[in-house]
Design a protein around this nucleic acid. Structure first.
Lengths: 101, 101
DNA sequence: CACACTACCTTGCATTACAAGGTAGCTCGA
DNA sequence: TCGAGCTACCTTGTAATGCAAGGTAGTGTG
């Protein structure tokens, strides 16, 4: 019915610029969405294998290297799709709320 | 993360007046939400066992009797909760969309 | 009385998210 | 120089959600 709004959020965040997992978790937390590592990593892997995301390893100045993610062309298209899906879902729920018998 | 927007939709529909399963499916379809029987019936049972819904059997003028559902007090409270959850999710996603780096 | 229709429900599977736990590189202080 | 702690990655097992497919039974109609 709604195909995971989390995926939508992740793609939104990555669309704004190269980030690595901890960045994403921070952004989600800032937006008041609680997500844990055990959810995020498998999802990133899945999106990678679906070719919606690409990553490059980058050295960090403090600690181990990081995987920085970006959207592929396919990922950008998919994000546009999800924006529409989301907008439709909002409309549907709105119509259910307004329609009082 | 979002605890099923479908449950929200079902409760919304039932909150507007006594309905039976096929009514709900029609309403969902009218709102452009595709749901099938195999999804709806187990969900209704679950909501019943959670005491959010109650039903009464009613004779039909054409065909077998129907289960008409209504919200319990608990169900009404739960629906208010879900309205808030939904509103927060919308805000969260909005904030992610607006915030362009 | 058999067939079609309506309305109920169940089973098995795929996907999604979480809790919990595990590996390994890097830095810093003793 | 080495080990404790941090950061960052990932995996496994489990619960919940939703769908596809199929099944049961009452009712009306030709």
């Amino acid at each position: 019915m709604r195909k995971g709004s989390l995926e939508f959020c992740i793609l939104l965040i990555i669309s704004r610029g190269e980030v690595y997992a901890s960045d994403i978790l921070k952004e989600l937390k800032a937006a008041d969405l609680i997500v844990v590592e055990g959810t995020l990593y498998p999802l990133l892997s899945r999106l990678k294998s679906m070719e919606l995301l690409a990553y490059t390893w980058k050295e960090s100045e403090e600690g181990p290297p990081r995987k920085y993610y970006t959207l592929t062309e396919k990922g950008k298209k998919n994000l546009e799709q999800l924006k529409q899906t989301w907008s439709k879902l909002k409309q549907s729920i709105n119509s259910l709320r307004k329609k009082i018998i």
